[in-house]
Simulated assay, not measured.
Amino acid sequence: MIASNALPAAPQAEAVTDYLERLDDSGGKNMGEKPWHLNRHLIPYFRTQQLDGLKDSGVKQYGRKRRDAGASRATVNRELSSLSHMTNRATEWKRIKPEHRPRTEKEAEPRKKIVVLSDEHSAALMRAAMEDQDGRLWLFVAFGLGAAMRRSEILRVRYDQIDFVSRRVFIPQAKAGAREQPITPTLAAALERQRAMEDYADGWISPAGPTARSDRGHRGSICKPFLRAVVRAKLDPEKVTLQVTRHTAITQLAKAGVDLPNIQRISGHKALAMVPRYTHIHGEHIDAAIGALDVPFPDAVTLEIHTPGKPAEAGQGAVVQLSLARTAA
């Protein structure tokens, strides 16, 4: 269980401790970042205010102060996301009234380039995962590359949520709500083989270890084993993060010509508008598509300026201006 290191005198300390404990017990996401954001920055700044006394103006001022102190827009936005998540949960748990929940407006961030793996690099990562001392790592990579699932979704999968006949995984907790996730025949067959070797055939695919801090039953992180596999595969750990397997899978769907609504059904995006950002402008599928417009110019095109006073040669039709003729110096 995660303990809060917030200042004891802070009025929000009890609420923060309750929030972190509940979140940890329920398998919440970003349990490494949220305590840091709250205890290191947010609680010290708002330490004289009650949780239901936070104002929109105060939250905006916090963002400006952090930016003035040198924090990046992305860092401040992550901190405000932690604050927003806590106040939303506090509202659900009846700790504060909805009208007392402050708005947390975030600054627009420049869009980062989405990193995807080539077929060669995907195979290298899979081999490295299978060779790792963590016997569950290959399953994580297989789900990412073969089903485009999110990290948290993969770690929460149970064998009794898999329909091996229809090759569907029931995901009760997802950003867009519960859904059925399709998986490939290869992944389904691998999961059946793995299940036959398990002590608990209906349990977690990624069970928590004996030293886990909560009783949620499944692992909360797989960062360290994944990093080992990335390094073993001779890939760049600064670029190849946990999300890259999902990004790669979605891009593969786009390159295969799958339409956006079906990509959305597989990826689980809440909004269709989020999908096009994964259909990268760079790639062989884009080059092949633009090739449909590749029509040779007619032989009549020249690099000279054609004027009404200059008749076309016999047998040639009128031509349009392609570029300016070079003028004399």
Rank of each mutant, 00 (worst) to 15 (best):
L83P: 07
M126Q: 09
F140P: 07
R89E: 15
S81R: 14
D52Y: 13
K94M: 05
D56W: 10
S118D: 11
R156G: 12
F140Q: 06
G58N: 07
V59T: 08
M126T: 04
D132E: 12
E79I: 11
I96S: 02
R158D: 08
R78C: 10
L80T: 05
D119Q: 12
E105N: 13
P102G: 04
K65R: 07
L83S: 05
K60F: 05
R101W: 05
H100N: 15
E99K: 14
A147C: 06
A148K: 00
W93K: 09
V76N: 03
S152D: 15
S122K: 04
F143T: 00
E99R: 11
D56R: 07
T104R: 00
A123H: 02
E109A: 10
R95F: 01
R95W: 15
R73W: 07
G63D: 09
G70M: 10
A108T: 14
K112Q: 14
R95Y: 13
A123K: 08
P98W: 04
T87K: 09
P110S: 08
T91D: 11
L139W: 01
L155V: 08
E131L: 11
G144F: 00
A147Q: 05
R156I: 01
L145P: 07
A71N: 10
I154E: 03
R111T: 09
A90M: 08
S82I: 10
E107S: 12
R95Q: 14
M126S: 07
L139V: 02
S72G: 06
L125M: 02
L117C: 00
E92I: 09
W138F: 11
T91F: 07
R111L: 05
K65Q: 13
E79Y: 00
R111G: 02
N77F: 05
S152I: 01
K113I: 12
A123I: 00
D52T: 01
Q133M: 11
E153I: 03
K55W: 13
